[in-house]
């Protein structure tokens, strides 16, 4: 399987996971969306040196991986492209902020290192939370939740269409690269000289295909608004789930819970 086939397969697999009948998947999409936004909001609001406090937020993805019966290893594999990029955030901090702010034994830890780690953890946690939302909620349900939250219709439609066009673009890329490799046997990768026409062709083909898809939508009554099937009701379990997580996340953000636990052990 080449890289593009792998990407298509990963994309389809995430799509299938979101449609499974697991407990996590059945939680109302609006609640999952709200909690994800709340989690990301609270996570990024931690002060730059408060690494200890931020560690407490790991509880949310940890528990979700458990109750959602999701594989952490698989998620790391899927996010292998994104995670290094988000880890670059704050990589320059150690060079600018050299004041020692704490010590681990004899080793002094500078503010730069601490803020870099805090930023990296914030980014990783935010990406993981988004990933957890995507693999437990189908795109239709996410868009339904956005509609319920009175997001502008045009944005909801954009989200749905972009999601659809990812697969269109991937399929076109596969066709073009397959055609190339069949006529360039034994060649590793794509020659630099071929990149220009190849990308140009891909763009033209994708536009052409997107145009036909749009025509197909218009011919079936599309007027700019996606009418989504989801009309699920909020159950008691959903409300309980929302209340417990909101309380837990606020406690983890407002109080130094891990410090208290640490002190209790040291005592």
């Amino acid at each position: 399987m080449n890289k593009i086939d792998g990407a298509i397969s990963q994309f389809q697999s995430m799509d299938s996971m979101a449609k499974e009948d697991r407990w996590m998947n059945q939680i109302h999409p609006s609640i999952k969306l709200f909690l994800t936004v709340l989690f990301i909001g609270l996570t990024v609001s931690f002060p730059k040196y408060n690494l200890t406090g931020l560690f407490g937020m790991i509880l949310y993805p940890f528990v979700l991986f458990q109750i959602g019966e999701l594989s952490f290893r698989e998620s790391l594999y899927r996010l292998r492209v994104v995670l290094p990029i988000v880890c670059i955030v704050g990589i320059a901090n150690p060079f600018f902020d050299r004041a020692v702010v704490t010590r681990i034994g004899e080793i002094g830890v500078t503010g730069g290192v601490l803020s870099m780690l805090t930023l990296m953890l914030k980014a990783v946690l935010s990406v993981l939370a988004s990933y957890l939302l995507i693999v437990t909620t189908s795109i239709e349900k996410i868009c339904y939740a956005l509609q319920q939250a009175h997001f502008p219709q045009i944005l909801v439609t954009e989200v749905l269409l972009i999601y659809r066009y990812i697969s269109v673009l991937l399929a076109e890329t596969r066709r073009v690269t397959q055609a190339y490799h069949l006529r360039a046997p034994g060649q590793k990768g794509i020659a630099i000289g071929a990149w220009g026409p190849l990308v140009g062709q891909m763009l033209l083909r994708s536009m052409d295909r997107a145009e036909r898809l749009y025509q197909s939508m218009c011919l079936r009554g599309f007027d700019g608004t996606f009418h989504l099937k989801e009309k699920s009701h909020v159950r008691r379990t959903d409300i309980l789930y929302l209340l417990i997580w909101t309380a837990l996340l606020l406690i983890l953000r407002l109080f130094p819970v891990l410090e208290w636990v640490g002190r209790w052990f040291v005592r």
């Binding site: 799509d15 239709e140 399929a171 036909r212 197909s216 939508m217 009554g221």
Partner: peptide, 21 residues
């Protein structure tokens, strides 16, 4: 491939009736 764009067959078939209200 240029005609269908929803995630499942059922969703795609339901696309037009939903659009027509």
């Amino acid at each position: 491939d240029s005609q269908m764009f929803m995630t499942t067959v059922e969703e795609d078939i339901a696309f037009a009736p939903r659009n027509y209200g």
